[in-house]
Amino acid sequence: MSLINTEVKPFKATAYHNGKFVDVTEESLKGKWSVLVFYPADFTFVCPTELEDLAENYAEFQKLGVEIYSVSTDTHFSHKAWHDTSAAIGKVNYPMLADPTHVLARNFDVLIEEEGIALRGTFVINPEGQVKALEIHDNGIGRKASELLRKVRAAQYIAAHPGEVCPAKWEEGAETLKPSLDLIGKI
């Protein structure tokens, strides 16, 4: 079953955020748009390139009212150590969630059980706590923040404009489509 339009299941996790350890729950996600970005592990290779790209685009997400949460099955202590020792991860200003019990990875169906790590899963969550977009990659395939920004903008647009849809390659300000009988066969 797809997670699209389902509510985020209950969880409680500790995050490393701005030099502190903070608790985050499913309730923390409500009232704003959120993006959960699962990655396999701290101190790896593709992961810091992705988290750095998100950090470099964090201001754009914030302008859209979006909070980013990176998530791995590491501990919050590991997140702090990685943040303190890696130039790329040192740029991260969004919460880094720890999931050593694998609750979140299981809830979002990205856990590789035999390895105890997560796949590269990205989840866009609306202010009501519902999953509106998701993408899951093999762990060798890195993600790009600008692609995620486009998807967030599209999800926000259709939430604000019921009855409209965003076509392929849609960018903010471009035309959308209004599905109707008159449109069938004309695209």
Score class of each variant (00 low, 15 high):
Lys12Asp: 02
Ala13Gly: 07
Glu7Gly: 13
Phe21Pro: 07
Tyr16Asn: 06
Phe21Trp: 07
Lys32Thr: 10
Thr6Glu: 15
Met1Glu: 13
Ala41Asp: 11
Ala15Cys: 12
Glu7Ala: 14
Glu7Thr: 13
Pro10Glu: 12
Leu3Asn: 08
Ser28Asp: 01
Ala13Asn: 05
Tyr39Lys: 05
Tyr39Thr: 03
Val8Gln: 02
Thr44Lys: 10
Lys12Thr: 11
Leu3Glu: 04
Pro40Asn: 08
Glu27Phe: 08
Ala15Ile: 03
Thr25Ser: 11
Ala41Gly: 12
Gly19Val: 10
Thr14Asp: 12
Asn18Arg: 15
Leu29Met: 09
Phe38Asn: 07
Val22Asn: 06
Lys32Phe: 04
Ala13Lys: 06
Tyr39Gln: 02
Pro40Leu: 03
Tyr16Leu: 11
Val37Tyr: 11
Thr25Val: 05
Phe43Leu: 12
Leu36Ala: 04
Val24Ile: 14
Val24Ala: 00
Trp33Ala: 05
Gly31Asp: 07
Phe43Asp: 12
Thr6Lys: 15
Tyr39Ile: 08
Asp23Lys: 06
Phe11Ile: 06
Ala15Asn: 06
His17Ser: 12
Val35Thr: 09
Met1His: 11
His17Gly: 07
Val37Met: 09
Met1Phe: 09
Asn5Lys: 12
Thr25Ala: 05
Leu29Ile: 05
Phe43Asn: 13
Val22Leu: 06
Asp42Lys: 12
Thr25Trp: 05
Lys9Trp: 02
Ala41Ser: 14
Asp23Gly: 05
Trp33Glu: 05
Ala15Gln: 02
Asn5Thr: 09
Val37Cys: 05
Ala41His: 10
Ile4Pro: 10
Lys9Val: 00
Ala13Phe: 06
His17Leu: 04
Ala13Val: 10
Glu7Cys: 08
Asp23Phe: 04
Tyr16Cys: 08
Asp23Ala: 12
Asn18Ser: 13
Val8Ser: 04
Val37Gly: 01
Thr14Arg: 13
His17Arg: 06
Lys20Arg: 15
Ser28Phe: 01
Asn5Glu: 14
Phe43Val: 11
Pro10Ser: 14
Ser2Val: 09
Glu7Lys: 15
Pro40Gln: 02
Lys12Cys: 06
Phe43Ala: 09
Glu26Val: 05
Pro10Cys: 09
Leu36Met: 14
Tyr39Met: 07
Lys12Pro: 00
Ser2Asn: 14
Pro40Lys: 01
Ser28Thr: 13
Asp23Asn: 12
Thr25Met: 02
Val37Gln: 03
Thr14Ala: 11
Leu36Arg: 01
Ala15Thr: 02
Val8Gly: 01
Val22Gln: 08
Ile4His: 13
Lys9Gly: 00
Lys20Ile: 04
Thr25Tyr: 02
Phe43Thr: 08
Ser2Ala: 14
Trp33Gly: 04
Phe21Glu: 11
Thr44Gly: 07
